[in-house]
Amino acid sequence: MLKTICYISDSREYESLENVKKIYTKAKQNNLKLNITGILIYQNGNFLQVLEGHEEQVDKTYEKIRNDSRHRNIIKVINNTIEQRIFEDYNFGFSIIKSSQEFNELNDYLNWLKHADNKIANKVILMVENFIGIIS
C-alpha cells in the first residue's frame, strides 16, 4: 500500500549552505534507496517535505526524521494512503528545491497536477503552494 506524509518543521539552527547541501544529498540518497519519492524544501530555517512510497518505508523514514536533532516543532500535516505517487515523474522521483527557478518549475508541475481528480494530490499541492508562497 502506498502512503504519503507531508510535514513541516523548524531547523534547530539556521543551517549554513554547506550543511543544507549535506542534508539534501543524504536525504536524496536515503530516499532513492527506499524507493521514496517526494520533495524537500528548505528556506529561512524551515523544512517542508513530502514523502511518498510504501507505507512501512514512509513511516520508518518519518520516524527517523522525527528523532533527528536538527528538527524541532515537527508538524505532520498530511498522513494518508494514496493510490499513486504525486512526485514520481517530477525530477527523477525526489527533488530538492533550492532556487527561485526550481520553485517556478515546481509551480508549473503542481499546476499540471491540479487537473488530476485526486483529493489527496490536491491537498498536497495546496500545502506545497502555501509553503512556497510564504518563502518566495
Score class of each variant (00 low, 15 high):
78 I>E: 01
39 I>A: 11
49 Q>H: 02
9 S>E: 03
62 Y>V: 07
48 L>F: 09
114 K>M: 12
37 T>I: 09
130 N>Y: 02
83 E>W: 04
112 W>S: 13
59 D>T: 11
45 G>R: 09
123 K>A: 15
103 F>G: 03
66 R>Q: 15
110 L>R: 08
96 I>F: 11
63 E>C: 10
117 D>P: 00
61 T>A: 10
96 I>T: 13
62 Y>I: 11
135 I>R: 13
136 S>H: 13
120 I>N: 02
40 L>V: 06
87 F>E: 01
132 I>H: 12
109 Y>F: 15
3 K>Y: 09
57 Q>L: 11
76 K>T: 14
96 I>W: 04
4 T>D: 07
55 E>H: 12
112 W>A: 15
33 K>P: 00
102 E>Y: 01
125 I>Q: 01
36 I>L: 06
81 T>D: 15
97 I>V: 13
65 I>G: 10
40 L>F: 05
17 L>Y: 06
38 G>D: 00
119 K>L: 14
97 I>Q: 02
18 E>M: 05
25 T>S: 07
26 K>A: 08
32 L>R: 14
6 C>T: 13
7 Y>T: 10
129 E>Q: 15
30 N>I: 04
44 N>S: 11
99 S>D: 03
91 N>W: 06
124 V>H: 05
35 N>A: 07
117 D>L: 02
82 I>R: 06
62 Y>A: 12
30 N>A: 06
16 S>G: 04
71 H>P: 02
33 K>I: 11
39 I>Q: 04
104 N>G: 11
52 E>K: 00
111 N>H: 15
118 N>V: 01
70 R>T: 04
44 N>A: 13
89 D>P: 05
85 R>T: 00
50 V>L: 12
41 I>Q: 06
29 Q>F: 06
79 N>T: 08
67 N>K: 12
107 N>K: 15
27 A>C: 10
136 S>K: 13
115 H>T: 14
134 I>H: 12
18 E>H: 04
27 A>R: 01
128 V>P: 07
2 L>M: 14
93 G>M: 08
79 N>S: 12
131 F>P: 05
4 T>N: 12
